[in-house]
Design a protein around this nucleic acid. Structure first.
Lengths: 187, 187
DNA sequence: GTAGCAAATGTCACAAATGTCGTGTATTAT
DNA sequence: ATAATACACGACATTTGTGACATTTGCTAC
């Protein structure tokens, strides 16, 4: 059970504190999406589908099912700025990955599944507001914590928060500010 | 594991998140079609048979197992142009996915693992040449076929070819040209 | 409140499927 | 070639699906 990609009915029964029989009924009824192994039809549910199911029913999501990795994706077209952020976060014990354009941001987001992303709002060719909106509209990025880092005025930062950013940080900023904000987001 | 044509029981066990012993039982029972090597009878399963097996049991199919998948990612900032390309390719029997900016291109590329990509060279905020270079430098995209579609002059198209594009098509183009080029790339 | 009712969930026992472990051997990497 | 790894197989442990039935829960009307 080291690297769990799928769950058995028993696993889910324990997570939901419910009887195994009930889990099977959920699957049979279709409210929880699963699939059956060829043998006798033992059920399996992908972690993604299970988390989706939990959310749809306002049930608590066990933290161990969420990608709790300490990986941060730093999206900033300014390499120096990106590296500066990286240095601070690395010292804070985070794995860091940087992306200097939209393509890299997209591919690295899907590939490494970071749990936190820092986002510069003003990048040539990549509208940070649009990106925020898109991410927040996508089910699979619900758990991604987004820290907006920008030199724009407070109004813009407020807009970013309204669009779903978890926190904002105005440039220039203190290293301690950055680190403590990111640390808060891991909780 | 670059170009796998057959899978071992261990591979399948990992894909299905199931014990190796169970995979062997599936094969022995005949629900998963495989063949045995002469030595001690180690099992092998062709990718095709494995995918068939997954489908028959409504199990999730890992996208990377569909190397010859007829999925095309259309990267073009012009939505009308993108849709036009999509129409043509859909008629030709391809699954199509469109991306209008770098972020979408990156994330959809990683998520759906298309085998073919059409690329507009001149997009605001996404340099097609840079993207080409980057993709060709990345091991995991070696098998991705790239068709560059551009209104730029021949010189630029040649440069794109030099950078690793598998084919180029200058705008405007005929539908037949597009389809036949894409068809060639699936071979 | 509570009586009644329907739907959802829990319990139980058994058979079948899957997991675990150890050993010996083939296969792959160095 | 040699070492490291992956694999098959048997025997046994554990989990799971199923059906029938008991119990709980949520709701409505009194």
């Amino acid at each position: 059970m080291a690297n769990v990609k799928s769950l058995t009915t028993g696993d889910i029964a324990k997570y939901c504190d419910v009887n195994l029989r009930t889990v099977i009924r959920w699957i049979d009824k279709g409210s929880l999406k699963g699939y059956k192994l060829p043998g006798r039809g033992n059920n399996r549910v992908t972690v993604d589908n299970f988390v989706l199911f939990l959310r749809q029913n306002n049930m608590p999501v066990p933290p161990e099912l969420l990608p709790k990795n300490k990986t941060v994706l730093i999206v900033d077209d300014d390499k120096d700025m990106g590296n500066a952020i990286k240095r601070v976060l690395k010292k804070g014990g985070f794995e860091c990955d940087t992306a200097t354009n939209g393509f890299l941001a997209g591919s690295k987001l899907m590939q490494h599944k970071p749990s936190i992303m820092t986002l510069d709002l003003t990048m040539p060719g990549l509208n940070g507001f649009e990106l925020l909106k898109h991410l927040r509209a996508d089910e699979q990025f619900q758990d991604l914590k987004i820290l907006v880092i920008s030199a724009l005025n407070q109004e813009s930062l407020d807009e970013a928060l309204a669009l779903g950013a978890n926190a904002v940080l105005s440039k220039p900023f203190e290293k301690d500010q950055l680190l403590s904000l990111v640390n808060e987001m891991t909780l």
